[in-house]
Design a protein around this nucleic acid. Structure first.
Lengths: 127, 127
DNA sequence: TCAAAATTACGAATTTTTTCGTTGACTTAT
DNA sequence: ATAAGTCAACGAAAAAATTCGTAATTTTGA
């Protein structure tokens, strides 16, 4: 019964999920176009990927129209939680501190955001 | 020539790398035993995985002794950087803030660590 | 209505990942 | 020295992920 908590998308699958989280429900063509910016991918390849993801429950399809519309089948929150947890274990030996450090150096973060993060930390400290 | 910067370990491969980062150089048996705590894996399966990882440059092997000893072929730092960057893009729409938030909720972090993270943030703010 | 265009369905092929059985080489203890 | 145990090499197979050609379906526009 580890089924419910298990979420192990492949690289490609996570890319597609990310596109849907960022852009809202999309057709295959839309996803394919966005994905092809980085890496050239044939239309039918993307289609097939998304069809399989539906089978796996990673996507939900609305096929009431000719152009089927796909949306995520897992919440971004759940996915984030799982993925961060795994990364934490495997690449950071469980140290959230190290992960935060890398996250902050990986990308320029505005001082407004930094402030919000500090506030967040303070709420954690208050426990 | 994206080869040099490319680091895309499979799930299994990252698990093995993590074991080596945490425990230092290991024999196949040692890795296999640690890995089998979570998921039963045959000895030769682990061996084969590690041999292939050597071919890919993910591991380095010292075969001067009968029991070959393996160590990581990529630094943990490089791997962390790459993996966090990718996760940031794909699952967090590039928002380091969100990622930090999830990291902090994913795991109990000591107040000592929280303090260090705050200090870290302050150094970022001073730029 | 009919042809062209866009889309989905299907299935096969390819590639990559994962698993493991078998063999032969080396080590250890007797 | 030899038997028992440990290990690496190898290859094959199974499983999973990825790619794409082709056919069928639906829509659109002339």
């Amino acid at each position: 019964m580890a089924k419910n908590t298990d979420f192990r998308p492949t690289d490609r699958e996570l890319t597609i999920l990310g596109i849907l989280w960022n852009n809202g429900p999309c057709t295959v063509r839309q996803v394919n176009e966005i994905m092809s910016r980085d890496e050239d991918t044939g239309y039918t390849t993307t289609l097939k990927l998304m069809q399989i993801m539906v089978e796996k429950g990673l996507l939900v399809r609305d096929d009431s129209q000719f152009k089927h519309v796909y949306k995520p089948g897992v919440t971004q929150e759940k996915a984030q939680k799982q993925l961060v947890g795994e990364l934490l274990d495997k690449a950071f030996a469980g140290s959230a501190e190290k992960l935060v450090m890398r996250a902050l150096s990986a990308k320029k973060v505005s001082s407004k955001e930094l402030d919000r993060i500090k506030k967040l930390i303070e709420t954690f400290e208050g426990e």
